[in-house]
Design a protein around this nucleic acid. Structure first.
Length: 630
RNA sequence: GGGGCGUUAGUUCAGUUGGCUAGAAUAUUCGCCUGUCACGCGAAAGGUCACGGGUUCGAGUCCCGUACGCCCCGCCA
């Protein structure tokens, strides 16, 4: 292979007829005709047909290959009109396999909708190879790039705000991050950069934007994930229409940049009460059936929202948030419309106060929202007063904002665009997951890597944390799992209701009692501990046990066991080594096939091969021939 | 948190009133083929029917439970 030959991409070969070029990419399709083999080589721009008449390395679908060959015009009768490169082909002089691909766990040639979504996420790196997904990623990149350019052209400054920050009490549930340096304390991941961006206005940035990752711990839906991307912006010295037009300019340019069509330009502006009357909701789809088929984007602004609503008494979280019976509809930092400021400051006609909020809707989804903010500290305080906050509670929650607003904050307003949702609409996809490179399942499990996962107990200790599920510690269960995983044995974890006795345990697991090693902690005269495991349906013969161990043994005090080992009596797994205690296992278990035991918690059991237990628990060898039963 | 649906070869799916030695397509492996472009032809291999119980002479199929997944509602300043 000629190392000096630089790479040519598939579509670029059209310009190089007659030349010898190097191509690198994936085997998209193989058509082996015996003496001649056609390989469709795929790279990020598309595919090209390569003709091999001299066989070398064995080829397989989706392997990564490098070929060198001459670009030839195809014979007239074998031109493929469906390909960008359909008039040419590569006469391969040499080729090699750079990375062989085994049998694929999921197909990558189809559009992928038919494949189980869980599998698509597990092998997301393959799933993204399919043309449909690749096109979405490229389109997303182009759209965001154009949006960015639009805001730069309008004199915005891009500023990053912290990911580790303070939680907000109202609104969505926060994701917490434990602090190592301040054990027992937590950061919250941002639900939006709302407060920071307003403080940037105080700082004189004047026009700010950011592609901000936002994180909310609420249940997932087709149009909502834990993490999402907002195009977040804020502007000083502006009114509603100025913010709206700055956003509209950039959005329109970006939509056009990716080749999509708009239904209406400029976007129609519809008051909230009219929308409710006409469409029954504050988000609506303005498209006709034909426009839906053509995937036209129907943007519209919704304005004139009420600032507050009555708390839904059935909704526990709203009741908790509001002490007065009123909660804000959109954003507590918004300013009411000028003509209602008097009412707002006095707390009168609360149900009639309108906010400066404006929402951007598109094809039935809310894709953005913002408002002019209350930069006057008295107005912001009045909002919290209406919700029933005491002066003290209010200062605790937003005192830092009030302070900034007393130190020269210009009037300002802004908006946040839901980038993922807009991409979903542009790509005409039915799920947000199709627009995100590595999304989560509905239950919050990550692509490819399978988080959330159990934390290392040492790491937890460093953070000053103990994991308790219910009232029991998780530590021994986790250590046991790690021990078993490290030994690479098969076992089954069963979660069940909390059980106290061996009978109950056997019942919930549906396993016989004689395969359950009951782990008993015994003390030696010198205070040292030993563990003796006998079938759960038998009683311990202390004389036999003492004889085998060679010391006079006594039952350890249950409270001592719980405090010393961190496990409740009855949930102690038959692995003394987890506690650095020598283990004896009654000889009857050497003949059993399976064992079932409580795994460090009264609500978890593990079923595994008896031989694996004996291998991993490393009992004192004499126990193989020892009987501890009465 | 409430409700609905689902889980059978690597993948996508069939599988009748309970009779199965569980099929097809595709992928994989091997063989044949010089003009295909989702090439074609022939052969082989591939399964703990999610897991655990139950009913039954007999369960992929019926019943109960668990896990996981998807959808709807709730929740999402």
């Amino acid at each position: 292979m000629n190392p000096n030959l630089s790479r040519t991409l598939t579509a670029q070969a059209n310009e190089k007829v007659g030349e010898t070029i190097k191509l690198q990419g994936w085997v998209d399709t193989l058509r082996d005709h015996g003496r001649v083999t056609f390989v469709d080589l795929r790279d990020k721009l598309g595919i090209i047909q390569c003709v091999i008449t001299k066989k070398g390395d064995k080829l397989s679908d989706e392997s990564v290959i490098e070929i060198i060959g001459k670009v030839n015009k195809r014979p007239e009768n074998s031109v493929n009109k469906d390909l960008v490169t359909g008039t040419i082909e590569i006469d391969v002089s040499e080729y090699k396999v750079l990375n062989k691909c085994k049998e694929l766990p999921i197909p990558v040639k189809s559009d992928g909708y038919e494949i189980d979504e869980e599998l698509r996420l597990k092998y997301r790196y393959l799933d993204l190879r399919r043309e449909r997904m690749h096109n979405i990623l490229v389109m997303r990149s182009n759209f965001v790039r154009s949006l960015r350019e639009g805001f730069f052209e309008q004199d915005f400054t891009e500023v990053e705000t912290p990911l580790l920050s303070m939680g907000t009490s109202e609104g969505a549930r926060n994701f917490l991050v434990p602090s190592r340096m301040a054990p027992g304390k937590f950061y919250a991941l941002p639900q939006s950069p709302q407060q920071y961006k307003q403080l940037l206005m105080t700082a004189g940035v004047d026009r700010y934007f950011q592609l901000a990752r936002c994180i909310r711990d609420e249940d997932l839906k087709f149009d909502r994930g834990f993490e999402f991307t907002q195009l977040d912006l804020e502007m000083s010295f502006v009114n509603e229409s100025e913010v709206m037009s700055a956003v509209e300019n950039s959005v329109k340019a970006a939509v056009k940049a990716v080749g999509s069509k708009l239904k209406e330009d400029p976007f129609p502006v519809i008051p909230y009460d009219e929308a409710i009357k006409k469409y029954g909701a504050d988000k609506f789809d303005l498209r006709t059936e034909e426009e839906k088929k053509a995937n036209v984007l129907a943007f519209a602004w919704v304005v004139k929202f009420p600032f507050f609503k009555k708390v839904d008494r059935k909704d526990a979280s709203e009741v908790e948030e509001s002490r007065s019976g009123w909660v804000f509809t959109h954003n507590p930092f918004s300013k009411p419309v000028d003509e209602h400021i008097e009412w707002h400051l006095k707390g009168e006609n609360i149900d009639k106060i309108m906010t400066t909020q404006y929402d951007l809707v598109c094809n039935g989804l809310e894709v953005g929202g913002g408002s002019i903010r209350a930069h006057d500290p008295e107005v912001l305080k009045a909002t919290y007063k209406i919700m029933g906050y005491s002066e003290e509670d209010m200062m605790k929650a937003i005192g830092h904002m009030v302070k900034a607003f007393e130190l020269g904050t210009p009037p300002h307003g802004g908006l946040a665009l839901g980038v993922d949702r807009i991409i979903m609409l542009l790509a005409n996809e039915q799920s947000l997951k199709e627009t995100i490179a590595f999304p989560m399942t509905r239950r919050g499990r990550t692509s490819v890597m399978d988080a959330p996962s159990i934390a290392n107990p040492d790491h937890l200790k460093e953070l000053g944390l103990a994991v308790n599920i219910g009232e029991e510690s998780d530590v021994i269960f986790v250590r046991l799992k790690r021990l078993l995983d490290s030994e690479d044995v098969k076992y089954e974890v069963i979660e069940h209701r909390s059980v106290k006795t061996s009978e109950e345990a056997a019942e919930v697991r549906n396993t016989p009692m004689d395969i359950a090693p009951k782990a008993m902690i015994l003390t030696k005269p010198d205070g040292g501990l030993v563990m003796v495991c006998i079938p759960a349906d038998k009683k311990l013969d202390m004389k036999k046990a003492s004889a085998v161990v060679g010391e006079k043994l006594k039952f350890a005090d249950p409270e001592f066991v719980e405090s010393e080992l961190g496990v409740k009596v009855g949930a102690v797994p038959p692995f003394g080594k987890l506690f650095e205690i020598e283990t004896y296992i009654d000889k009857s278990f050497w003949e059993k096939e399976k064992v079932a035991f409580n795994a460090g918690r009264r609500d978890r059991s593990i079923i595994m091969k008896a031989s694996d237990l004996i291998k991993i628990a490393e009992p004192n060898p004499v126990s193989k021939d020892s009987d501890f039963k009465q």
